[in-house]
């Protein structure tokens, strides 16, 4: 009887080494090539180009984007989306960035039934509540211009469920955090202290499993809106 814990690691790895016909290397193997091709990082688009690219790529995936330069326009933009989807309830991160943009207040002004994600509440209860609202609203930490993706890092305030369970996701993104490629976001990470989850969201939840017929929102949100502060 083997116990399947870390203890049989040695045996497992020895077998690999013997197949490869050498002892396991003691230090990181040297190599000359890693990562994407060199030309990939050569081009440096301007902030404006990055914004245009981001919006074009996201919209191709049905994501609605709106650039806001005046803080006073946030409410009317979100209000427009809310009435478009006829939402009544909303869940929002209780995060300093969203508060600074007055998002919780705006939700209340719009007459929405607002829940704040509370990481000190009961787990099961909070997740259930999140699954029962019409919209989840979050901050997005980065944008990826060449794919129209947004990156969200998890932490106690930045819940994973809020961008996943409700049928609609609204994200707030700062214009200057839109970077050319996914790799540019990787370089911003602290590898000694990674978030438990780093999620790239590229458009709504989708499937083509039934006769290659595209359908949105099979498990995650069917609609995604991105408000870009710039």
């Amino acid at each position: 009887m083997i116990t399947y814990t870390d203890s049989n690691e040695e045996h497992f790895l020895e077998k690999l080494a013997s197949k490869l016909g050498r002892p396991t290397p003691g230090k990181i193997p040297t190599r000359h090539i890693s990562g994407p091709p060199d030309f990939w990082t050569k081009t440096q688009p301007s902030q404006d180009e990055l914004l245009q690219q981001f919006i074009a790529n996201a919209e191709r995936l049905t994501v609605k984007c709106q650039l806001i330069s005046n803080k006073n326009d946030i409410q009317s933009t979100i209000g427009g989306w809310i009435s478009e989807i006829k939402a009544k309830s909303i869940i929002c991160w209780d995060s300093p960035e969203l508060k600074q943009a007055s998002i919780p207040d705006i939700c209340q002004n719009l007459g929405l039934n607002l829940t704040l994600w509370n990481h000190q509440a009961d787990r099961r209860e909070m997740i259930r509540q999140c699954a029962n609202v019409d919209v989840g609203i979050t901050w997005a930490d980065y944008g990826v211009a060449n794919t129209g993706s947004m990156a969200i890092l998890s932490n106690p305030v930045q819940s994973r469920a809020v961008s996943l369970l409700p049928p609609v996701h609204i994200a707030i993104l700062k214009r200057e955090t839109i970077l050319p490629h996914m790799g540019d976001i990787f370089t911003k990470l602290d590898y000694t202290d990674l978030p438990s989850s780093l999620t790239f969201i590229t458009g709504p939840s989708r499937t083509s499993d039934i006769e290659m017929d595209l359908a949105l929102g099979v498990h995650g949100p069917a609609k995604v809106f991105i408000l870009i502060l710039g």
Partner: peptide
């Protein structure tokens, strides 16, 4: 270009995280 979701998961939830 990318699938709708790309998740990079590093260990279980951190202390204080309610989901995960």
């Amino acid at each position: 270009k990318y699938t709708s979701y790309t998740s990079i998961i590093s260990g279980p939830s951190h202390p204080g995280e309610l989901d995960g």
